[in-house]
């Protein structure tokens, strides 16, 4: 039995469990065995003083739902080994919120071009500092702060 830090409920009645980030992988394995066979999404939330990762789980057998939350400081273990579908969701969370997932097979930016500076969904992301993208010689994206360098 893996210790749960605390429990609560969302407004629509889904149970929420908080788990420490060391226990995340064993806990998720246990939940998968309990029947939560689908990972709906991975969310990163920036609470300014800390980051939080939220996993939405669903059991397609009986329709139970569960939210698993874990507090982190930019790094947490990847769950791609348990649900292969986590791959893109974790890449997106890395891209937009800047949470690095350990042991992820291909942790690269997914929505923004490679080379983008910063993670836009952080609360302190500078929205007024524009970045410009252009195609490099090799056909990949090139990012710079110079408006003459791209669009």
């Amino acid at each position: 039995m893996i210790p749960i830090e605390s429990e609560s409920k969302t407004k629509d009645g889904t149970p929420v469990v908080y788990i420490s980030k060391e226990n995340l992988i064993p806990f998720m394995k246990e939940k998968k065995d309990e029947g939560y066979d689908m990972l709906l999404m991975v969310t990163g939330v920036d609470y300014v003083d800390h980051l939080e990762v939220v996993y939405h789980l669903l059991s397609t057998k009986d329709g139970r739902r569960l939210l698993v939350k874990t507090k982190t400081d930019e790094e947490v273990d990847s769950v791609t080994g348990i649900w292969p579908g986590a791959n893109w969701h974790e890449r997106e969370t890395y891209d937009l919120v800047g949470i690095r997932f350990r042991n992820h097979p291909n942790l690269k930016r997914i929505l923004l071009p490679e080379g983008w500076v910063g993670h836009p969904l952080r609360k302190n992301y500078p929205m007024d500092k524009k970045q410009y993208v252009n195609l490099g010689e090799d056909g990949e994206d090139k990012v710079s702060y110079d408006p003459k360098e791209g669009y």
Partner: peptide, 27 residues
């Protein structure tokens, strides 16, 4: 579905969109 977190103000604190095509396209 949209996972909305509110902090008691008139502006949502975090909006996370669960988009089906994103997951489907991955397959």
């Amino acid at each position: 579905g949209v996972y909305v977190i509110g902090d008691g103000s008139t502006i949502p604190y975090r909006v996370r969109i669960r988009s089906p095509s994103f997951a489907n396209l991955q397959a």
